[in-house]
């Protein structure tokens, strides 16, 4: 076993010293022929014949050198390297072809990525909440505005007699600072009843509720998405209670969302959730006109 490792190491070393070791072996073969020639002369051969016999008994030098190199280094590595160099030369010679080939590949890969993303969102990982069949998304259709305003949402919620409850959410892009490394993060600002409407239970700590909201900027709480907690907080169990800065405003981490919950938007897994009543602090403009 150790011999195997020793041989492998020796081969790797040699793979990076091909020219030098070729040279060394050529010298060694030359000295072999020289020694054999001297011996033959001592036995009474003519110098020319002595040399010829010496070479004959040694065998074909080119073949020996090739075999020696193959044993010494990593022949497959050398040939892969050769192939890569050759490919590079050919591609450089016909830039038009290269461009089209690269473009075609890029297009193909992009198409596949999109198809996979869609498949992942629709089929592999659909919205994972209790009773998804009773969940509906409300959009306005009578003008071009893509979103409801917050006051409209409040009216709809308060006068709703069709659904159990109505929650609201909006994209939120912030500078996320845990104390020493501010980074961009994408999350959602959600109405206080968001988690309760969806029936989500916290993975750690707690989630915020409608009762946490007492008017604009009254609920500086943040719930981390599971993936973000995993990736940026290394699954730190003591994260609950810590204060982080979102766009330079302090927010207290109250909990972590469960791993299977990836927000309510396709193709978007929020890094965090904050109460929508605190959105003013995160936005340059004030969307909460109420």
């Amino acid at each position: 076993m150790l011999d195997f490792v020793r041989v492998a190491l020796s081969r790797v070393r040699s793979a990076f010293a091909i020219a030098r070791e070729d040279d060394d072996f050529t010298r060694e073969l030359a000295s072999h022929v020289e020694l054999a020639t001297q011996e033959n002369i001592r036995r009474g051969m003519a110098p020319g014949e002595a040399r010829r016999q010496a070479c004959l008994r040694l065998g074909g030098m080119t073949q020996l050198r090739e075999d020696h190199r193959a044993l010494r280094g990593l022949p497959w590595f050398a040939s892969v390297l050769q192939d890569v160099r050759y490919a590079w030369r050919v591609l450089r010679k016909s830039p038009g072809f290269t461009l089209i080939a690269v473009f075609t590949l890029a297009l193909g890969i992009a198409a596949n990525a999109v198809v996979f993303a869609a498949l992942n969102a629709f089929i592999l990982r659909p919205l994972d909440v209790p009773r998804p069949e009773s969940l509906y998304s409300i959009h306005r259709t009578f003008d071009d505005a893509a979103n409801e305003s917050y006051p409209d949402y409040v009216d709809l919620r308060d006068r709703n007699r069709t659904f159990e409850d109505l929650a609201a959410y909006t994209f939120q892009f912030v500078g996320f600072d845990t104390g020493h490394n501010p980074a961009r993060a994408w999350g959602v600002a959600v109405s206080g009843n968001y988690f309760d409407v969806l029936g989500i239970q916290p993975h750690r700590g707690r989630l915020f509720h409608a009762s946490d909201e007492h008017g604009p900027n009254s609920a500086p709480y943040i719930v981390l998405g599971y993936a973000y907690w995993h990736g940026h907080f290394q699954d730190d169990p003591n994260v609950v209670g810590r204060t982080v800065q979102l766009n330079k405003h302090p927010f207290t981490i109250v909990g972590v969302a469960p791993p299977e919950f990836r927000g309510t938007l396709l193709f978007f897994n929020p890094d965090f959730f904050v109460p929508i009543v605190n959105q003013e602090q995160l936005q340059s403009g004030n969307l909460l006109i109420c």
């Binding site: 011999d3 020793r6 041989v7 020796s10 081969r11 072996f25 060694e28 073969l29 072999h32 054999a36 008994r57 040694l58 065998g59 074909g60 030098m61 073949q63 020996l64 075999d67 020696h68 044993l71 010494r72």
Partner: peptide
């Protein structure tokens, strides 16, 4: 055999130290 074949043997033995 050709005398040259000992060199293959020598490489293998050196590699194994």
């Amino acid at each position: 055999v050709n005398q040259g074949t000992v060199y293959a043997s020598l490489v293998r033995l050196v590699q194994k130290r």
